[in-house]
């Protein structure tokens, strides 16, 4: 049933992946300038606006290609989405434990959420000043620090992953990505509180 939850993305055709589409090496570290200029070039060649007067099949093909290019750019230009996408490529069909988390991590997240509940009961006004605002700011600082170190760890894991990484590295990466989602969720809540 889990497969039902995966959003469908326009997929690159056989042997083609988002990195190759932009002529970039398949790696987590990315050269933004190259990515941006490749994106522009591709868009200028296939955007449907240039085919507005073309026959229907040509227009449809341009639309499909342009949609793919936009999605590929969206994924590659985001650190999280690029990591997730690359992990899928590296796993090459091997199944990963999509729930993997470090020992005690969930409990820690639950406790942080509960702490927020106590500090800022639902329906309470936004914390823009006072001691509570300080608390929220402190927690946000903590979460941001955690996210930073996650990103650092991820860079190292990908750097040492090579073409065909072992199970342990894959698991490490999956765990890393999972942790980020929980932390982002906390961050979102803190931002709402602070507004």
């Amino acid at each position: 049933m889990d497969c039902m939850n995966k959003p469908l993305r326009p997929s690159a055709s056989d042997g083609e992946d988002y990195f190759r589409l932009f002529g970039l090496p398949r790696s987590y570290a990315i050269d933004r300038a190259s990515l941006d200029s490749a994106y522009e070039e591709l868009s200028l060649s296939c955007h449907p606006d240039f085919f507005a007067a073309a026959p229907a099949p040509e227009l449809a093909a341009a639309r499909a290609k342009s949609t793919l290019v936009n999605e590929a750019y969206r994924v590659l230009s985001s650190d999280s989405l690029r990591a997730e996408y690359l992990l899928g490529l590296l796993a090459a069909g091997r199944s990963l434990d999509t729930r993997a988390l470090p020992e005690g991590f969930l409990m820690e997240m639950l406790e942080l959420q509960e702490e927020l509940d106590e500090l800022f009961p639902p329906e309470s006004p936004p914390a823009t000043d006072g001691p509570q605002a300080g608390q929220a700011q402190r927690m946000r600082g903590l979460v941001k620090e955690r996210l930073e170190s996650l990103l650092e760890e991820r860079r190292k894991l990908f750097a040492g992953a090579g073409e065909s990484p072992d199970e342990q590295i894959l698991r490490g990466l999956q765990t890393n990505l999972n942790c980020e989602k929980y932390l982002n969720r906390l961050l979102e809540r803190l931002e709402i509180i602070e507004q």
């Binding site: 729930r99 988390l101 969930l106 959420q113």
Partner: peptide, 13 residues
């Protein structure tokens, strides 16, 4: 039981 959904970061106890 404490569980989580990494799809969205939900936590449930």
């Amino acid at each position: 039981g404490v569980v989580g959904a990494p799809e969205c970061g939900d936590v449930m106890k």
